[in-house]
């Protein structure tokens, strides 16, 4: 059951990414091109994605337990630290350069050709390298 839900969530996430146009790097880069030919599509995607989650968090607050039994994750910290700001800054730069964030980077692997694999490989290497060097504590998500 748990695996089926993982598969369904992943599939619906991937479908949403391709339908919304977020697997098109030109659209994402267009959104970030605030001082050029700006494309506001991403705001509709993010806005649309937040709507079901607003309800989901309200239900989660009441239930505290997921359908499959484990407790619904609560935030470990609300502390704003340097890692959060600096890391998000690095991410933003990479996001602008190629027009891919981690979700779409995986969603295009099946049809994006070799270039998609080069980006994915570098992204995975960055993830592994960061942990190998800094050994941060438990991973939240």
């Amino acid at each position: 059951m748990r695996l089926l839900i993982s598969l369904l969530s992943g599939a619906l996430f991937g479908l949403g990414l391709i339908v919304s146009g977020m697997t098109d790097t030109a659209k994402v880069q267009g959104w970030l091109d605030l001082f050029g030919n700006w494309d506001p599509t991403l705001a509709f995607v993010l806005g649309g994605a937040i709507i079901p989650m607003l309800f989901a968090w309200r239900i989660a607050e009441r239930r505290k337990t997921a359908v499959l039994g484990n407790s619904i994750p609560v935030p470990v910290t609300s502390h704003i630290d340097r890692q959060l700001v600096l890391g998000s800054g690095f991410f933003g730069v990479g996001w602008a350069l190629a027009g891919l964030c981690p979700g779409p980077a995986m969603a295009v692997l099946g049809y994006g050709g070799a270039d998609a694999f080069i980006f994915f490989g570098a992204m995975a290497a960055g993830m592994i390298g960061y942990r190998a060097i800094f050994r941060p504590g438990a991973v939240a998500a």
């Binding site: 969530s9 146009g21 991403l42 993010l46 079901p52 239900i59 989660a60 619904i72 998500a141």
Partner: peptide
């Protein structure tokens, strides 16, 4: 299409949160 796809993304996140208990 952005809005429709966005609703799907949010639906996926809601499913994963409420059924699997994961972010």
């Amino acid at each position: 299409f952005g809005l429709i796809g966005g609703l799907m993304i949010g639906g996926a996140a809601a499913l994963y949160l409420l059924v699997s208990g994961r972010i």
